[in-house]
Amino acid sequence: MERRTFLRGAVIGTSAAAFGGTLMHGAAYAAPAQKGPGPYGALGTADANGIQLPSGFTSRVIARSGQVVSGTSYTWHNAPDGGACFADGTGWIYVSNSEISTGGGAGAVKFNSSGSITGAYRILSSTRNNCAGGATPWNTWLSCEEVSLGYVYETDPWGVKAAVRRDAMGRFKHEAAAADPVRKVIYMTEDESDGCFYRFIPTTWGDLSAGTLQVLKAGTATSGSFTWANVPDRDGSPTVTRDQVSGAKIFNGGEGCHYANDTVWFTTKGDNRVWQLNLLNSTYELAYDDSLVSGGGAPLTGVDNVTGSSSGDLFVAEDGGNMEICIITPDDIVAPFLRITGQSSSEICGPAFSPDGKRLYFSSQRGTTGSSSGGITYEVTGPFRS
């Protein structure tokens, strides 16, 4: 496999996702990434919250399922999952999905410039298994239903405007979404063992009410070129969307998705892979594969949600594994960034950086209890590199 240029990740701007930024690169290793020492050093002993962190980093609990968020009247939802941060004047908002079959939806926590909680509230209700999603450049949160023939809901992180179901984005087992402001499309993953990878092209950028749904076409290899083809019936009936286009590439359990600098990364849990689409030349390859880690003992397993930092590091959360968020650096090194102890029956969800890049939010979906009512949402603060 050719050595790749790893385009550096998120640029911290006015919203949660990375929409553009400075192009930098490194190529110390051939893709896919290999284990090595992380940029923050070894993990220390578990802190009072049961989290092992590198030196200089600290954690705090933001919210717990079934309990009122401190200083507010909002009871935090069960099974917190995908999330994102949005700038709010001098502060910010963290939104979080609820992956339960009845009620679902999403909630939000508002912070002031010092990081103190100033509010919490509901932004979406009466939906099903809201797993991951993605932020848009116009500061809305796309909350995705991880159910057969599920929908995407566009929500207001401030909780002022009513959420809107976006039928044009297709009906399938939605997982994550990532906005690409250069090509003016939204990429989407599908959580099926024979799922596909999609993009939605809005008729008008910034308005998701109408547009074209497409699926990625490519060969069966782990690298090569790709094209896009229109999905004839986005409602998935009578034929599901993943079976409508001949030559659509199959991915084993699509999960997280992240866009930055003409590159989109997404994870597949069925084979513990992180895929990379190079959008400038329409090629794809593996950014990580746990079965291709030299020397055994792959540091990252159970790949799930993914986000990026302003330094270009990818942060990949584990569903299972040993409850870590692992980092994949621009020079193709993969290493643990943090580990949650005592919660082996849970999964890590919703990693997202505050707009200034100094705080990382995420949840343990089932916490210490192993139940959806035991979810815990955390914040980690420290010397994240920029």
Rank of each mutant, 00 (worst) to 15 (best):
M188T: 00
M188D: 00
T189V: 04
T189S: 15
T189P: 06
D191S: 03
E192S: 10
E192H: 10
E192N: 11
G195N: 06
G195I: 02
G195E: 05
G195W: 08
C196T: 08
F197L: 11
Y198L: 10
Y198I: 01
R199S: 01
I201P: 04
I201R: 14
I201T: 08
I201K: 15
P202T: 05
P202R: 02
P202C: 09
T203N: 09
D207K: 03
D207T: 08
D207S: 11
L208K: 00
A210V: 04
A210L: 12
G211H: 03
T212W: 08
L213V: 04
L213W: 06
Q214Y: 09
Q214I: 01
Q214E: 15
V215K: 02
L216I: 07
L216E: 09
L216D: 10
K217V: 08
G219C: 07
T220S: 15
A221C: 06
T222Y: 12
S223C: 08
S223H: 10
G224W: 14
S225E: 12
S225Y: 08
F226K: 02
F226D: 06
T227L: 08
W228K: 05
W228V: 03
A229T: 03
A229H: 09
A229G: 10
A229E: 12
N230G: 05
N230E: 14
V231G: 08
V231W: 11
V231A: 10
P232E: 14
D233Q: 11
R234H: 11
R234Y: 15
R234L: 12
R234V: 06
R234K: 14
G236S: 15
G236N: 13
S237L: 13
S237A: 11
S237R: 13
P238S: 09
V240L: 14
T241S: 06
T241E: 10
T241D: 11
R242V: 04
R242T: 07
R242M: 07
R242I: 00
D243K: 14
D243N: 15
D243V: 04
V245Y: 09
V245N: 07
V245C: 09
S246M: 09
S246T: 12
S246R: 06
S246E: 10
G247M: 05
A248I: 02
A248R: 00
K249S: 01
K249D: 00
K249V: 00
I250F: 07
I250Y: 05
I250T: 13
F251W: 07
F251H: 04
F251S: 00
G253Q: 03
G253H: 01
G253R: 00
G254D: 10
G254Y: 06
E255H: 07
G256V: 04
G256N: 07
C257R: 00
C257F: 02
C257D: 07
H258Y: 14
H258D: 15
H258L: 09
H258W: 15
H258Q: 15
Y259T: 02
A260M: 06
A260T: 05
N261S: 10
N261D: 12
T263R: 14
T263H: 15
T263V: 13
V264F: 07
V264Y: 05
W265K: 01
W265H: 15
W265T: 00
W265I: 00
F266N: 00
F266D: 03
T267I: 04
T267V: 06
T268C: 14
T268S: 13
T268N: 13
R273G: 02
R273L: 04
V274K: 02
V274H: 06
W275S: 01
W275N: 00
W275I: 00
Q276F: 03
L277V: 01
L277I: 03
L277W: 14
L277Q: 05
L277C: 04
